[in-house]
């Protein structure tokens, strides 16, 4: 028995991978299939699912509504399309901002003295490891009407004898954007750093030797070589921003409803799991499409593991 297992490499591999594969099958693959099945169902009056095959949930998502003013049977309700579009643009804007903030920092760390790199990196890790919800709360404290930012601005205005009306910053789209950028910034810094750190110093010297000024060296050598890091970071930022609902919930209030909030509400408040599942499936398909085209263009960096 043991001898046979010793000679059968394939059986050894299967056995080793079995627990994980089984676990992922039960708690990932089946749930995803179930979500797909439920998304074609209907809401029962008691908030459960009636299993049938109906495209109603998807038709509702793309904006064709049956809940219309008198006299019309169908009409266009842009609510959900707006939510999808808002989520996409927010995810895009957040990612671009995160890259702009993360890149110089990652570059700074990668080009510091090797002894100091770990210290700088740990300084990035501390906010990352501070709990997600706590980080959102920190921004609530900063952005509130009576919060720290307004307090500082008021103090400055007082010194300058300017009349100051506290800014309404919390519960705005801007607050949600800042919150998202703050939450996911470290996920961009680490992979970009990893790919920048790999660049051999002699490449910079070679570029300089061949007559490139620092700016051109950056454009022609540094940037292309760090692209795997940017790609990995983008995946690590874009996808969670698309799905997160706490940031918009706590910093956006009722102003900024994203697809994550929509899904969450279908399951907990509106009790319409079928519609929630359809929204969730659309969210998944959207992120997969974006990831697919993005990685097909730039490749899927191994830097993703670094974070």
């Amino acid at each position: 028995m043991l001898k046979r297992l010793r000679e059968n490499k394939s059986a050894q591999g299967t056995l080793l991978a079995l627990p994980t594969t089984f676990w992922m099958f039960i708690l990932l693959i089946i749930p995803l299939i179930l979500t797909a099945i439920v998304s074609f169902g209907k809401r029962s009056p008691d908030g459960n699912v009636i299993y049938t095959f109906s495209l109603d949930n998807y038709i509702r998502l793309i904006g064709i509504s049956s809940d219309c003013p008198a006299g019309q049977t169908t009409c266009f309700n842009p609510l959900y399309v707006q939510i999808l579009w808002r989520s996409l643009t927010l995810a895009f804007n957040s990612t671009v901002l995160v890259i702009m903030l993360a890149y110089p920092l990652a570059y700074f760390i990668a080009r510091s003295h090797p002894n100091r790199r770990t210290t700088f990196l740990f300084m990035v890790l501390i906010p990352l490891w501070t709990n997600f919800v706590i980080r959102v709360y920190a921004w609530m404290m900063l952005l509130r009407k009576e919060g720290a930012i307004n307090a500082v601005l008021g103090w400055v205005a007082h010194l300058l004898h300017i009349n100051f009306v506290p800014l309404e910053m919390l519960y705005t789209p801007g607050a949600v954007l800042v919150g998202m950028v703050y939450e996911f910034l470290p996920f961009m810094i680490l992979p970009i750093y990893t790919s920048l750190e790999k660049i051999d110093n002699s490449l910079y010297e070679a570029a300089a030797d061949l007559g490139a000024n620092p700016f051109r060296t950056f454009l022609r050598v540094t940037l292309p070589l760090s692209m795997p890091g940017v790609v990995a970071g983008t995946i690590l930022v874009f996808i969670p921003v698309m799905g997160t609902f706490i940031v918009s919930d706590l910093l956006g209030g009722k102003q900024v409803i994203l697809i994550g909030n929509l899904i969450q509400r279908q399951f907990l408040d509106a009790r319409d799991p079928a519609f929630g599942s359809a929204s969730s499936l659309i969210l998944m398909v959207m992120t997969l499409i974006v990831t697919y085209f993005y990685t097909r263009k730039f490749g899927f960096g191994e830097e993703i593991v670094a974070a």
């Binding site: 990932l28 179930l34 979500t35 996808i239 969670p240 599942s277 969730s280 499936l281 969210l283 992120t287």
Partner: peptide, 18 residues
Amino acid sequence: YVPIVIPEIVMGIGILTL
């Protein structure tokens, strides 16, 4: 790779449903 390329909420509600 799937959990990395899909939003956590998708996995969360999937497990909830199951």
